[in-house]
Simulated assay, not measured.
Amino acid sequence: MKSTTIRRWSFIHTWTSLICTLFLLMLAITGLPLVFHHEIEHLLGDAPQFREMPANTPQLDLQQLVEAAQAHRAGEVVQYFGWDEDEPHGVLAITAATADTEPNSSHTFMLDARTGEAVETPSANGGFMMVMLRLHVDMYAGLPGKLLLAFMGLLFVLAIVSGVVLYAPFMRKLTFGTVRNQKSTRTRWLDLHNLIGVVTLTWALVVGVTGVISACADLLIGAWRAETLSALIEPYRDAPPLKQLAPATRLLDIAHGAAPGMTPDFIAFPGTRFSSEHHYAVFMQGGTHLTSHLLTPVLIDATTLDVTAVVERPWYMDAMGLSQPLHFGDYGGMPMQILWAALDVLTIIVLGSGVYLWWVRRRAAKASGAEATA
């Protein structure tokens, strides 16, 4: 590789890395507890606790649960109901002052599906895990924070690619995995930086790309609403505002009929960003671990309970659905979580060593310049 090309790639690698390093260190540190968020919530006592009841205790219907949620949060409306396979007796409820209230101003809790009792989930509304999540997702800056982190993710990907380009000729000089312990401290750290960087290469690219996609989620959802949802609800453009919703009792049966073989993941109530002013949207998921993250919305008229559409997913919504669990290692249970955590720690070492190497080289260049002018 020609020296001018090497210098060009070295410049790209150095400055893309330096610009994004502080943000990436923050993301790596906050991402570590998020990989084990279920376990940490149980350890902190934030996981919902349900009463022991006979196994055959029947569950309330959906409308009864809606009324229970509204009674628990008087004056608020239900935005979403969701289901979690880890909580067979619970229904996740999200309520807010209005249906279109932005997510960070909503309130989340669990309902016991058998009794309608509300069980608070402190970690969903504040506390340590929520602080980690907000820092990791948007740094408490909303959409501008998400877009800034997406840009830092792109710089991270470029830093990885440029690092691989620079490492290729380096590999021809040394056996893979060599750490020259007899050399200077800087050389040893350079060898470790390169070695760990190559070991974590694939993981870092996966996490970087999925992080960029996840950070752009608001834009992707906005595009889905503008391109797909708006066309499907066009007949309702001039419809008068809803005065009363049809009871939610049969929503799941209706959705099962429209999307056989699938199970419900969550319901978006009318007026939220995943539905329209005149529809319930029941998001159905596939039966495999992979397809469980690919959601198919069933639009149900909120007055007549007629199915108006089974919405096809655009590719970018599939990309978002697959990237978010992959970003946090949610696909393979505890073994994958441990692997993700180990690679996260190694990435912190790569980032820290990169800053150290830049600082040492910069200091040496200043010293050489001072000697030349002396």
Rank of each mutant, 00 (worst) to 15 (best):
residue 352 G to S: 12
residue 147 L to P: 05
residue 136 H to K: 10
residue 216 C to P: 01
residue 357 L to A: 11
residue 84 D to M: 04
residue 226 A to Y: 14
residue 259 A to S: 13
residue 78 V to A: 07
residue 143 L to W: 13
residue 147 L to I: 14
residue 14 T to C: 15
residue 272 T to G: 12
residue 99 A to S: 11
residue 86 D to Q: 04
residue 58 P to T: 08
residue 195 L to Y: 05
residue 143 L to S: 11
residue 279 H to D: 11
residue 351 L to A: 14
residue 162 S to F: 06
residue 156 F to K: 02
residue 342 A to I: 10
residue 88 P to C: 06
residue 334 M to T: 15
residue 131 V to M: 09
residue 24 L to R: 01
residue 247 P to E: 09
residue 373 T to F: 09
residue 15 W to E: 10
residue 205 L to N: 07
residue 171 M to F: 10
residue 214 S to W: 12
residue 15 W to K: 08
residue 172 R to I: 03
residue 20 C to G: 08
residue 179 V to I: 15
residue 171 M to T: 11
residue 319 A to I: 03
residue 38 H to Y: 15
residue 219 L to V: 08
residue 280 Y to A: 07
residue 25 L to F: 01
residue 362 R to L: 02
residue 181 N to A: 14
residue 315 W to F: 12
residue 327 H to Y: 08
residue 178 T to H: 05
residue 170 F to P: 00
residue 252 L to S: 07
residue 368 S to P: 00
residue 374 A to S: 13
residue 250 R to A: 14
residue 217 A to T: 14
residue 318 D to W: 00
residue 246 A to F: 01
residue 57 T to V: 06
residue 341 A to D: 11
residue 70 Q to L: 09
residue 253 D to H: 06
residue 357 L to P: 09
residue 124 A to M: 14
residue 45 G to V: 01
residue 82 G to H: 01
residue 118 A to Y: 00
residue 358 W to S: 12
residue 152 M to N: 03
residue 233 I to L: 04
residue 207 V to Y: 03
residue 79 Q to W: 02
residue 117 E to Q: 11
residue 281 A to H: 07
residue 307 V to A: 14
residue 136 H to G: 02
residue 20 C to D: 03
residue 170 F to W: 13
residue 31 G to N: 10
residue 84 D to G: 00
residue 47 A to M: 06
residue 274 F to G: 13
residue 97 A to Y: 03
residue 182 Q to M: 04
residue 160 I to R: 01
residue 250 R to M: 10
residue 181 N to F: 10
residue 97 A to D: 12
residue 287 G to R: 12
residue 303 T to W: 08
residue 291 T to W: 03
residue 314 P to K: 11
residue 214 S to C: 11
residue 231 A to S: 11
residue 371 E to G: 03
residue 367 A to F: 04
residue 88 P to V: 04
residue 45 G to S: 05
residue 80 Y to W: 06
residue 83 W to G: 01
residue 240 P to V: 02
residue 240 P to T: 06
residue 154 L to D: 04
residue 296 T to Q: 15
residue 78 V to I: 09
residue 230 S to D: 15
residue 282 V to C: 09
residue 228 T to P: 00
residue 1 M to W: 11
residue 12 I to G: 09
residue 330 D to P: 00
residue 68 A to H: 05
residue 130 M to Q: 14
residue 173 K to D: 11
residue 11 F to A: 13
residue 145 G to K: 01
residue 137 V to A: 10
residue 360 V to T: 11
residue 296 T to V: 14
residue 159 A to I: 04
residue 317 M to N: 09
residue 265 D to N: 15
residue 235 P to D: 12
residue 138 D to F: 07
residue 201 L to P: 00
residue 221 I to H: 15
residue 343 L to S: 03
residue 336 M to G: 15
residue 224 W to I: 06
residue 35 V to N: 03
residue 112 D to E: 08
residue 163 G to K: 02
residue 310 V to Y: 09
residue 274 F to N: 13
residue 302 A to Q: 05
residue 347 T to C: 10
residue 338 I to R: 07
residue 42 H to P: 00
residue 183 K to C: 02
residue 60 L to I: 03
residue 60 L to E: 04
residue 62 L to M: 14
residue 218 D to T: 14
residue 326 L to R: 06
residue 55 A to F: 05
residue 353 S to D: 11
residue 330 D to G: 00
residue 22 L to W: 12
residue 274 F to K: 08
residue 278 H to T: 09
residue 105 S to I: 01
residue 336 M to C: 10
residue 70 Q to R: 13
residue 229 L to F: 10
residue 24 L to K: 01
residue 110 M to Y: 14
